[in-house]
Design a protein around this nucleic acid. Structure first.
Lengths: 222, 222
DNA sequence: GTCTATATATGGATAGAC
DNA sequence: GTCTATCCATATATAGAC
């Protein structure tokens, strides 16, 4: 639960750029955006994570990006579109992370450790982006929400698939696969809510701890 | 993660009244409030849970409570005070629930099952209130936040105490007590984010599942 | 204690110059 | 593509009658 107030420092570009920058080099999927647009997204992500979407003003976003309020609208049609772009890229990046981790693992047990640990670490390292992805979802327009939902289904699916594979191979023992997948995702997602950058737990430690907990939970009676 | 949009129906009075109504009969601790004040708190809790604190208008609250906008200010000095009252009562109720469940259990294992299962069920049954307690925290004033933080520390403490008692008695096997306590709380808290009233999982099923998962997690290698 | 009416501020978004 | 200036809607909270 953690009883401290998360004091969110400005996003360092290095920490988040990778998740918001255009999906470089992928044939077909590349939506090219200008440097200024990326700068605005970084500024907005910072502000949304700190105050939430409704409490963030376009003036605040513009000011953080070093622009006038009107300057933002050259690159994004509305505040909501800005939220959507950040949210879409964040979801896609999180999904890619999980898919790759699951694919590269040697066994279902190691896949489980890798995806839950990695997803938890991601929600620590990118906790501002994680908060937007997980907690500002409802402020998207119905159309944009529908698009993001597809990405969320993929994410659910990766975890459930790994659990099912482990149960089939006999490596894992899970009573209720969907419920366990959901609980494991909850553990990782909630990291974005309580994580504080300078705190005792580092993203690396969180990865180890949560990866271990996931394996423990799914091995069970043994 | 759950990919659906939580459609939050109006709070039924029966579902939440118990958590917002004055702490009846307790000597000294009773802050008496009028029926109208309770009605306003119910209306505000409904609106806050649906749209979040900043996106909720006082007009919406007043309208749901059957009052004019001005009528609200007779009972609460500001929208933030209203959030604080709801938040304080919600936290206190959740804490009391945990303390009682831990106290009444026959063993650390059963205490663990009861508190994690009960806390999870609470976040389903009172998911509107749970969302406010867990996700609107940052919108409290610094003074009010400080007061709520004390209640949050109590909640953390109950879980950690049960785990420690189990480890000491040899019933439970936990590597890192604070980290495990945090992860278990995360599982339960996150229920408030994804729970949908008419969905497949009932509060009772959630209680069972999450209680079992907690015991599994803390028994480990056995 | 509730209302109508409104003061006052603030926000999202646009117009039009450069 | 960026700016200054501003429109217009909406929000919190208050004044004052009943």
């Amino acid at each position: 639960m953690l009883s401290t107030v998360p004091s969110t420092p400005p996003l360092t570009e290095t920490a988040v750029l990778a998740a918001l920058a255009p999906e470089g080099g992928r044939p077909g999927g590349a939506t090219d955006v200008s440097d200024t647009a990326v700068r605005i997204m970084l500024a907005a992500a910072d502000a949304f994570a700190e105050h939430g979407f409704p409490a963030t003003t376009t003036r605040d976003i513009a000011s953080r990006a070093g622009l006038s309020p009107a300057g933002v609208y050259v690159h994004f049609a509305s505040k909501e579109v800005l939220l959507f772009e950040i949210s879409r890229r964040g979801h896609a990046r999180a999904r890619d992370l999980l898919v790759e981790a699951a694919r590269d693992a040697a066994s279902p047990t190691e896949a489980l450790r890798a995806i839950v640990g990695g997803f938890s670490r991601w929600h620590a390292e990118h906790h501002q982006l994680g908060r937007i992805v997980q907690f500002e979802f409802r402020h998207l327009s119905p159309e944009h929400r529908a698009e993001v939902i597809e990405l969320r289904k993929d994410i659910d699916g990766v975890v459930a698939d790994v659990l099912r594979a482990g149960v089939e191979s006999g490596e894992l023992d899970v009573d209720d696969v969907p419920a366990t997948a959901l609980a494991l995702l909850s553990m990782a997602i909630d990291v974005a809510r309580w994580y504080v950058p300078g705190g005792r737990r580092t993203p690396e430690a969180i990865e180890r701890t949560y990866g271990d907990l996931a394996v423990r939970l799914a091995h069970g009676r043994g």
